[in-house]
Design a binder for these strands. Structure first.
Lengths: 186, 186
DNA sequence: TCATTTTCGTACTATTCGGTATTTTATGCC
DNA sequence: GGCATAAAATACCGAATAGTACGAAAATGA
């Protein structure tokens, strides 16, 4: 059982329930390793959760950024985001990043810093995507790109969180579509 | 120190931080009573949090329902809701009900049931409000009242939660206004 | 004033948490 | 085989959790 396998176990556990509800003990048991082994590898709970978040970012979040950079235009990209948030099977139990972000105050300093870093990267990606749409003339009047990016990010987070809480994906899709219609009703 | 004073202390503590982060010990200390006294009065932590939620509902949430029933028309009522969510000083540290709802799985059975009950009442109130607007002809095509009610409720919850996490009230207002503009852009 | 009952708080479970000291086990080398 | 070394697990620590047993104190009634 190497470090990456442990991270996969931790990621699955954190992702499936909630980082705050999964103890180090539970992860050791699930991974079949002893507690000292885990501490040798990751130093602390904070170290483990940070490493887990890093792995999640490169394995899962990176794909969202690909969608944002696809350059297929405002409507098509928004549609792809809606698909991802409301129907992608990986978001069935929510998004580990959003779970960590919403329980930020319970995280250790390393992990919290990483959450904020990823949040900023995400905001920048949303803003770049919307700026491109604006440059292409697809943009409602009287809305700044920054405000739009924040809005877009929060709406997607809301949709994924709602799915995680057991909401019907069709309802989530309807709500997210309605929320994002503000970008296309010129 | 009677039961209602204890509930006020608990409400403040739960509301200000998060129900999951406030222990029975801490509440006893803040209220200046002993733990057995608290258990005599409320039976269990679940009993205390349920009673606290009840008190919160009748003292704070009830006013939101008043706004919804004001009958001042779609635009004016939405504006009042936006004011409430983004500027009312009582929502500065968020809404206790939404905090409990988002951490539902950590609550005891009594409190959880009460949360679901209040949630249903809220949905019904939103739906009644929107139905009235629809009857008055103020309604976008192709949107069901139920979906609109759910959307409205989630957007307000999101706005208040964002405020609790330290977001600038002006930004929150802008986002909520944008989100609710789907109801008025006919 | 004394006895009874009710109220209340100190002091205690039992468990779980993150984290670690110590001992046991496996490994490599001669 | 015998021995040094590295790795891993057992068993523990102190703190914090929800919840309670039991004795002290205070109010009540005669």
């Amino acid at each position: 059982m190497n470090a990456e396998q442990v991270l996969d176990v931790a990621m699955k556990a954190y992702w499936q329930s909630d980082p705050a509800d999964v103890s180090i003990n539970a992860i050791c048991q699930m991974a079949g390793i002893s507690k000292p082994s885990l501490y040798r590898e990751f130093g602390s709970e904070d170290g483990l959760s940070r490493a887990t978040l890093d792995r999640y970012a490169e394995q899962v979040l990176s794909e969202m950024f690909v969608v944002l950079r696809s350059g297929t235009g405002l409507r098509a990209t928004l549609a792809a985001l809606i698909d991802f948030a409301s129907d992608d099977p990986r978001m069935e139990t929510g998004c580990l990043f959003y779970k960590m972000r919403s329980g930020k105050h319970r995280l250790g300093p390393e992990t919290r810093a990483r959450v904020e870093e990823i949040d900023a990267v995400g905001q920048a990606a949303y803003a770049a995507f919307l700026q491109a749409a604006r440059d292409a003339g697809e943009w409602p009047e009287g809305l700044s790109v920054e405000a739009g990016a924040k809005y877009l990010g929060e709406q997607i987070a809301l949709a994924i969180t709602m799915r995680a809480s057991g909401e019907d994906p069709a309802d989530v899709r309807e709500m997210l579509t309605l929320a994002l219609s503000v970008f296309t009703k010129l």
